[in-house]
């Protein structure tokens, strides 16, 4: 199936990987449509990198399947990878090879490369192409890694903790670049610890926990649904027990007329109670993705339907 004709850029079905008796990834079913920037979240050891290595054909799935751009990632690896750019978390190569030599080598292996695009991007990132990889700092190696990942203008970019070790300015440049790639229709699969980055860049996220996919949701839904922080100042003293009694209210602090608390689930009952009293000040804030993520990790292990 040609890459363009594939319905999804990434499509895994019950993807499982075991190393001996330990199970790194279990029954992972996930689809990422073309043009989406998808965040793949999870702590160290959750199975993010193992999943990515199966998508890239470096690891053979123990069971299940992974299709990339319409091609089976393991059996038809070269065809699948033809349209993929990959940036690992700590990009490295032969320490004696310069960035320019590496880009030339990969262009020759791929039989494709957009020299003008890469040169322009190298100037923009201030990448040091003429120094051996072994002489570069981690951040500068990562810039070369980004260049090699996008040099052939792939329709799918897979990145595993791409901004670790980069300074904030380069992280911003990186975020801008991902935005431009998305605008060009590139699908981006972004594994990250950096929740702010994921929140900024991604439209949907998948959360992985001990090898299992806990949920796949839109970032807005995830941050909007989970919990809200409420700060309220009433125009008169209010009995706090009426607030504590409401479903979903937790962490109540304050006294008399001023309270702060969190609400999980619907705000309806809280609003009904507030409406019964004069309210001088009300502030409801959505949680960061970080908090939403922590909320998931606070739950017992569950598997996405």
């Amino acid at each position: 199936m040609p890459a363009e004709a594939a319905e999804c850029a990434i499509d895994t079905t019950a993807l499982t990987k075991r190393f001996g008796r330990s199970r790194a990834v279990a029954d992972l079913s996930l689809t990422v449509p073309h043009g989406e920037v998808f965040g793949f979240l999870g702590p160290n050891g959750a199975g993010k990198t193992t999943t990515i290595r199966m998508l890239l054909g470096l690891l053979k799935p123990s069971s299940g399947s992974a299709r990339v751009l319409g091609h089976e990632a393991w059996r038809d690896g070269p065809a699948a990878r033809r349209g993929v750019g990959y940036l690992p978390g700590d990009f490295a190569f032969d320490p004696h090879v310069t960035g320019a030599e590496l880009l030339d080598l990969l262009a020759a292996v791929r039989g494709a490369g957009d020299g003008a695009f890469v040169r322009g991007l190298a100037r923009r990132l201030d990448a040091e192409l003429d120094r051996p990889m072994g002489d570069l700092s981690r951040g500068n190696r990562q810039k070369i890694g980004l260049l090699q990942a996008v040099a052939h203008r792939p329709p799918l970019l897979i990145m595993d903790e791409p901004t670790s070790g980069l300074d904030p300015l380069v992280q911003d440049e990186f975020a801008d670049l991902v935005g431009e790639l998305r605008a060009d229709g590139t699908t981006v699969f972004l594994s990250s610890h950096n929740l702010a980055e994921v929140e900024k860049l991604c439209s949907r996220v998948g959360i992985l926990r001990t090898g299992r996919l806990v949920t796949v949701e839109r970032v807005d839904d995830l941050t909007g649904r989970a919990i809200r922080h409420v700060h309220v100042r009433f125009g008169e003293p209010v009995d706090p027990t009426s607030l504590i009694a409401l479903p979903g209210v937790q962490g109540l602090a304050g006294h008399d007329a001023q309270f702060t608390f969190t609400v999980s689930g619907s705000l309806d009952t809280v609003l009904e109670l507030l409406a019964a009293h004069p309210v001088a000040e009300l502030e409801v804030t959505r949680p960061s993705l970080d908090e939403a993520f922590a909320a998931y990790y606070g739950q017992p292990e569950a598997v996405a339907a």
């Binding site: 470096l58 070269p78 990878r81 690992p88 032969d94 039989g111």
Partner: peptide, 13 residues
């Protein structure tokens, strides 16, 4: 390892 990771994620068998 880094060399393999860079080259084997290119479209090469």
């Amino acid at each position: 390892r880094p060399v393999l990771e860079a080259l084997l994620t290119a479209p090469i068998t």
